[in-house]
Design a protein around this nucleic acid. Sequence first.
RNA 1: GUCCCAGUAGCUCAGCUGGAUAGAGCAACAGCCUUCUAAGCUGUGGGUCGCAGGUUCGAAUCCUGCCUGGGACGCCA
Length: 556
Amino acid sequence: MNVLTQTEDTLKQEIAASIIKANLTSEEELPEIILEKPKDKSHGDFAANIAMQLARIAKKAPRQIAAEIVENLDQTKASIEKVEIAGPGFINFFMKTDFLGEVVPAILNARENYGKTDAGQQEKVQVEFVSVNPTGDLHLGHARGAAFGDVLCNILDASGYQVEREYYINDAGNQIDNLALSVEARYLQALGNNAEMPEDGYHGQDIMEIGKTLAAEFGDKWVNTDREERLAFFKEYGLNYELGKIEKDLADFGVQFDNWFSERSLYKENKITNALKTLDEKGFIFEKDGATWFKTTEFDDDKDRVLIKQDGSYTYLTPDIAYHKNKLERGFDKIINVWGADHHGYIPRMRAAIQALGYSAEQFDVKIIQMVNLFEGGEKVRMSKRTGKAVALRELMEEVGIDAVRYFFVARSNDSQLDFDMDLARSESNENPVYYVQYAHARICTMLKQAEEKGFSVNKDFDAGLLTAEKEVDLLKKLGEFPQTVTEAAQKHTPHKVTQYVFDLASLLHSFYNAEKVIDPENKEQTFARIALMKAVRITLANALRLIGVTAPEKM
RNA sequence: GUCCCAGUAGCUCAGCUGGAUAGAGCAACAGCCUUCUAAGCUGUGGGUCGCAGGUUCGAAUCCUGCCUGGGACGCCA
């Protein structure tokens, strides 16, 4: 429980009590008390618009209502320093600031746990993300999804949810057969044979590598073997190679999964026929034109969807339905999918499946990650998976660095397209926000080190009551907000709020640094208090950066 | 034609369940290093919130229509 929410809750209760006492409305009709944090400091620490909301119910002028609320308010109990009625009927509350003194000790005590809450009440959430077909390199768009998904999991975890990260491996179906054919062509080419790439082949550099490796390792061994056997081998070989690469790239990017779920296992364990049976029993299946259809229009989809094609094979949707059925059977309260923007049209049919299987649509959520446009030298870099000219995650990490890539990807809302400026991300200058934040952390580390060297013990008791300078109060308030910010980001699935927070906190730190001197041998008590404050800021910066997967350097 | 996302300062973007004079970074301009890292700070200028209606005490935010950009509309995955 943090001190800020506590004061806020108490204030809400007191306002409600006051309204009842003033006889403005009944308890039943009382609207929810909403307190906002005004942008303008002159509007206090909290502002309530309840008087305007009550205007109609109480049939009185808002300012009159506000006056009556203030009159009946127990200001001492609510820790109010000063109340003002402003504008059309806002009540502005200026809170007693002594509670701020509790912020720093609370952080120093919680350390790496500061920011964690139990808001999620151990709800079981599964997040499936990346899930790229194992047929090529991870590129820019996947990287954004990876960063988003990973950070979302981090903040859910910090907010008291039980999170599981999962990657769905599409190791069955057409694309894998195509992979085998592509590998075959590259292998034969590597041996100098004439071989053409299949129509829908994968033209990436990586497939050529596989071909060369196979040629080097096996020579012409596979040229004269039975084609079926050859393709079967190449399929497994290619799959393992690609998956290994994907896993390595992601791990280097700081993303690790709890579970790698194989599409094939759905076939092996009859999960697909099972799911089909369930849908059939519930009456959502019908036959038409020699194919088997799923009546998704029963659930707001544009048209019904084919599950089993005329040739007897499944569409992509069919195993996917079985997969999602399996997810829910594993007991998750909620399953979240992170998909690229090009898959958004797929949502209604998947949601239909969830409902048709007897689950609630509420349990299923899809986060759409909008496209990433890459800019270099002021020009847009075109990408295409077919030509293999995609900018790979690997390349990006090497050129730009993991910290910058991750920071940039979670700096913006997932449903805005993102312009990724290579030059900016690469630059080690003040234009680059990553360095700005990391610099704040490094700065504090230097101060704490110097304090120690000058004989100021960092762990000494201090008087938090001495932290009253304007910049100090700003920092204390911001520090106190952190747990709420994380919780909000978790509940609304908005990781970029944490990125924004860490930037704001860094900004306040820099501002404080330039305005006040921390280490002052002439003023020991103040120095101890400020060292403690710096330590609290350092912990909070580090915790926030850890959530977004960016390092917090001690020196720059 | 239908659906999804976006349209806010020169550029890139925030803006929470509707609230007070619409914010940040970069860019521009003017200042600040004998003092804990100037990868920093302080200040200034800059906006018909795509357009038009509607809902209401109040709309960048909600509703409707339109315009622009991107994406999706397969018995592909």
